[in-house]
Amino acid sequence: MRPPRVHRLTVADAADRYADMVRAKAATGALAPGTAEVYVRDVLTFAALAGAERVLDDLDGADVDGVLVRFARKPDGRRAGGPAHTGTGARTGARAGVQSAASQARFRRSVSAFFRYAATAGWVQLDPMASVTLRPRERGGLRAERRALTAEQAGGLLDAARELAAAAPRGRADQRTQLRDGLIVLLLVSVGPRVSELTRANVEDFFVNAGVRYWRIFGKGGRTRDVPLPGAVAEVLDAYLASGRRELDRGVEGKALLLSWRGRRLARGDVQGVIDRVLERVEPGRRRGVTPHGLRHTTATHLLAAATDMDAVRRVLGHADLSTLGRYRDELPGELEAAMRVHPLLTGRRTGNGGTRD
């Protein structure tokens, strides 16, 4: 149904009004802050790519097609200048800086939500998304940048992070972030937080209970979860709090756990650069490029592969429903063979007289 009267707003004005609405929903708790940040960033990007001074109602499916193509070719700032990782899933040549399939799908969802709201608000007569001809990329299997690292690859990354944290020098301004970088990778691999949960963490969110270090993570929908940290990770955290963070602190961000070398709270977009720097220290045979979300997949996959209780994994990752784990459970080479070797119905099967059969 068409609105009775269309407000002929420019793309920029419509994007600004939509961004204000999203921020208001986040302020009232109706929308997670991290989700709101993504929506706002995507709609402002859409406005820039579509033409800020154009009238929103004049855009048709072909115009949106053009925006989607331009976004797909837009350099991915998170990976700019990153190392040329070797192994399966490495990006090479012209593909190295473009938007990933996941980013393109997310951008498309954000634009769709924007136009749905625009149609309801009377900014457009018809939703142009209905006539978009470009279709989302078919999955056809797991994307390399989101597939879980193997145990060998994850071990190489963890070893590099521990070595980086242990060897972090003191004094030089450009090297004070090494202890922080090691801590970031250790937290991502061991706990699997969302990148927004990691960058929003404050010093006061980490506490000790019965001699165990815990991280109180503030997740989606206002839910919190207390996750115990492995001992090796807790040691690096304590070292960072005792020295590394103090060297970075400029008194600007009093509560933030992770600080930039300028003393500001670390931004979401900086985390990929941290992972890439640590990956440079991994030997080529164990190195594969990965995103923060790929490390979340890695945590879930290896916890489940080790027969960890599914509900415990759900609580570590902060999911409301067990069914969500299916999206984070990736296949590992050789895991089916390993499972069958220790089949519970065949291994050490007992005979009728109390003995065992080989």
Rank of each mutant, 00 (worst) to 15 (best):
L157I: 00
G141E: 07
R73W: 09
R73Q: 14
R73S: 14
R135Y: 06
L241M: 07
L188P: 01
D159T: 13
Q178H: 12
L248Q: 13
W215V: 02
A118H: 02
L259D: 05
L44E: 10
T177N: 14
R79G: 12
V98W: 01
G221E: 07
A300R: 04
V212A: 03
V203T: 04
Q99G: 07
L134I: 09
L345P: 06
L188T: 01
L258C: 03
K220C: 08
E247L: 11
A165P: 02
K255D: 12
G251H: 09
T351R: 11
A118E: 00
R194M: 05
V208L: 01
D205K: 01
L142G: 14
R262T: 15
G192N: 04
H7P: 06
G29P: 10
L248E: 13
L332H: 14
A15T: 10
G254I: 04
V6T: 07
R223G: 10
E197Q: 08
E163I: 04
G334E: 13
V6N: 04
Q272L: 05
R341Q: 12
F115A: 05
L259K: 07
R5M: 10
T224P: 07
V40S: 12
T86Q: 15
V212C: 00
R5L: 10
V203A: 04
A161C: 06
L134E: 05
H85E: 15
V274F: 01
T92G: 14
F206W: 00
R95H: 14
E331H: 15
T35I: 03
R194S: 09
P136N: 06
S260E: 09
L325F: 10
L183I: 02
R180N: 11
P3A: 12
R41K: 10
G318P: 03
R200W: 04
G182E: 02
L259R: 09
R162D: 07
G348P: 04
D65I: 01
P169Y: 07
R8I: 04
R314E: 08
A12K: 12
A256T: 05
E138F: 09
R349F: 08
G140E: 12
Q99D: 02
I184E: 02
V55F: 08
A306K: 13
L183K: 01
A300P: 04
G61D: 02
D159S: 12
A105N: 05
R350E: 05
G263K: 11
V227N: 01
G354P: 09
L248T: 10
R162N: 08
T86E: 15
A84K: 15
V342Y: 12
R329S: 15
H343I: 06
Y240V: 07
S243H: 13
G289K: 06
G263A: 13
R268G: 15
D321W: 08
L336M: 15
R8V: 05
T86D: 15
A36C: 11
